[in-house]
């Protein structure tokens, strides 16, 4: 009897495809120049320290945690396009990852973050905090409600702007799957001008971070919807292995 109550098989995780991710050094994103390790990563593979991971229960999630329109507001709704973001957390074997903690944060509709060190002159929205979280259901599904974030300028090139985006942090079933990424919006021309996005080597990989506008999931006269699936590392089945990993 398994003690982790999951449908996962427990082999080692597939090697991370480093050519699919942005490399550590992406000089057009200037901060990476001094923050990128120069030595090759040491290949460790998976030990039990990487194949295990923390569990977050639905009990820790408050009723408004996935509603950024209401979870900070005091005097009314925040300004901006009302937006639903929904999708699934899957692994590379296309299996749903249930019980995944998904955290998200974003700027307000004017592109301004609520953060001590944020200096952009766009206005703070008194009714918008900009953070939310949820846990995927048994089919790996999640959703939240927010307002669409605005683009914002950032100190990199003299005139660099980030496309509208939402930051995502995801906990799968093992620390080896830990991932932080960003979601972009279909049709935004600024995606292809952004040094952070363009650090991703292939157009095909970038496209997997662009959420699709979904009129069918939108609420008429109320809220537009975008679909954003997130894929975490897959893992081998132990079926064909002659020893159990981690033992």
């Amino acid at each position: 009897m398994r003690n982790d109550n999951t449908t996962y098989q427990d082999g080692a995780f597939f090697q991370r495809d480093r050519a699919w991710h942005p490399p550590a050094l992406t000089p057009d994103y200037k901060t990476s120049v001094l923050r990128s390790p120069k030595n090759a990563l040491i290949s460790l593979g998976n030990t039990i320290s990487e194949m295990t991971g923390p569990v977050f229960g639905h009990a820790m999630i408050g009723p408004l945690d996935n509603d950024l329109i209401r979870n900070y507001a005091t005097t009314g709704d925040p300004i901006g396009p009302r937006t639903i973001v929904y999708g699934r957390v899957l692994d590379e074997n296309a299996r749903p990852v249930q019980g995944a903690l998904v955290e998200f944060w974003q700027a307000n509709a004017g592109g301004r973050y609520r953060h001590k060190k944020e200096t952009y002159l766009a206005a703070i929205d008194p009714n918008f905090g900009g953070c939310g979280r949820t846990i995927t259901d048994d089919e790996g599904r999640y959703w939240f409600r927010t307002i669409k974030p605005g683009a914002y300028p950032w100190p990199n090139g003299v005139n660099d702007w980030r496309p509208a985006h939402i930051h995502f942090s995801v906990f799968g079933h093992a620390f080896a799957q830990r991932l932080i990424t960003q979601m972009y919006f279909e049709g935004d021309p600024m995606i292809w001008q952004c040094p952070i996005v363009m650090g991703i080597p292939s157009r095909e990989a970038v496209e997997t971070l662009i959420a699709a506008l979904d009129r069918e999931a939108s609420l008429p006269m109320d809220t537009l919807a975008y679909k954003f699936d997130i894929v975490l590392r897959g893992r081998r089945s132990t079926m064909f292995e002659n020893r159990r990993e981690g033992n």
Partner: peptide, 24 residues
């Protein structure tokens, strides 16, 4: 499927991960 490509956590990672640390 391919793993979702990673993107930087950025300077405002606290908003989503440690909001009390920055006064939310």
């Amino acid at each position: 499927l391919k793993e979702s490509p990673s993107q930087t956590a950025g300077p405002y990672v606290h908003i989503g991960t440690t909001p009390h640390f920055i006064g939310i």
